[in-house]
Write a protein that binds this DNA or RNA. Structure first.
Lengths: 213, 213
DNA sequence: AAACCCAAACTGTAGAACAATCGTTGCGCA
DNA sequence: TGCGCAACGATTGTTCTACAGTTTGGGTTT
């Protein structure tokens, strides 16, 4: 087992994002270390990374558990998304290569929707918004935004509903892209702002229906 | 030694930010563990946190060293700052309590400048921009922005010049605040954008003069 | 001077051990 | 029965030791 730690954190990250461990689930050091065939020390190092990324909650003396975003977290995440995605889009050029990535994501989402593959639709949806951030040419913004989306994915996992939360917004991504190319960044950013507000509302509504904190 | 790790990372963070360890300096696990009276394992956990925060560089099999932002990093950091600070300010209310924090920071910088305490001026300057982000009411944005400023502080440390990089911009913070209250968020955000462009230029200029990569 | 090789130093990882803390169980008492 | 409380067991926090794999620096050889 060579470069464990580097791999371990990202492997765990993928598993968490894909729902292998449910949001809120306790991650025992002993059990996980045994299952992942690694030592507690190495595992704990990976935990620090994931904790810093907001994917796991770490409570002193009580270990770590998969993050389970509360309503307040969802609100916070969407605030950050509006600032970052909105700011980037408003200040970007419609000629930036990242726009092609946006287009690709839209098409991927569309064809996945045709086949009713809602998991892929959700992934493509997020890829669209990640592509928006590409327009800023900032590695740091990309990283941060990726972490926001990862946290949000946990919220979706907790809701267990990919269809209802992504499908209605599919066409609006296309609309944003259309505005970006046709009417310029400002118009696109305005639509994005509305999109994010509505999306947030949908998630919060689902949370409320589930009676989450 | 009780709650070491939680404390350790933030203690190390403070030391790094205050220049106890020079940017680029190698941080030996053995040496540091001995000096800080902790174990290698615990220290390594702290390293993961700092690495994730961008304050130290971690190269596999070669250990960690204090981050030494290159020109490309400075550019990246300022891109992120323009997006975040600009986006927050443009969308904020002049009546938000955070505006008072901005005012306090301006006054602190002013009185420190009167006493030629440039270190405090620098800190107050950064506090002003941190206060801007407060206007978003987003813990995540605050955290990210704080990490950007911390990284930038390393750049300033590498340049070893607090006066030349902060003094010229002192009055412009006041101007931004004035515009925010008087002419509204949009005008303030426009001035902030210009401020950040000029500030970036100043840092990059100093980098070029020092012949840094 | 350049290429090569070797030994020392350091990092990466594992594992055992023990203290500190938390949760729970079960007992005693009202 | 119900409540408080103490002891127990399990888990985390931290340290230490050990060793394999890499890097580094120096010396040797060509």
């Amino acid at each position: 087992m060579a470069d464990h730690r580097e791999t371990l954190a990202s492997a765990l990250r993928d598993q968490i994002i894909q729902g292998v461990y449910a949001p809120g689930q306790k991650l025992s050091e002993q059990t996980l270390a045994r299952d992942l065939d690694t030592s507690r020390n190495t595992l704990r190092e990976a935990f620090r990374v994931l904790s810093e990324q907001g994917l796991v909650d770490h409570v002193p003396n009580r270990g770590v558990s998969v993050a389970a975003p509360a309503t307040a977290d969802v609100v916070d995440i969407y605030r950050a998304r509006r600032t970052i995605e909105g700011g980037v889009l408003a200040g970007a050029s419609p000629l930036h290569p990242g726009v092609d990535r946006m287009r690709e994501a839209v098409e991927r989402a569309r064809s996945a929707a045709d086949e009713s593959d809602w998991a892929v639709v959700g992934t493509a949806n997020m890829a669209f918004h990640a592509a928006i951030v590409l327009l800023a040419d900032s590695a740091r913004l990309q990283k941060v935004h990726g972490q926001l989306l990862a946290e949000l994915r946990l919220a979706f996992l907790a809701l267990g509903d990919a269809h209802g939360l992504h499908a209605p917004f599919l066409s609006r991504n296309a609309r944003i892209l259309e505005l970006m190319v046709g009417d310029g960044p400002k118009a696109a950013a305005d639509e994005l702002e509305r999109y994010l507000i509505d999306s947030e509302r949908a998630v919060l509504g689902a949370y409320a229906r589930l009676g989450r904190d």
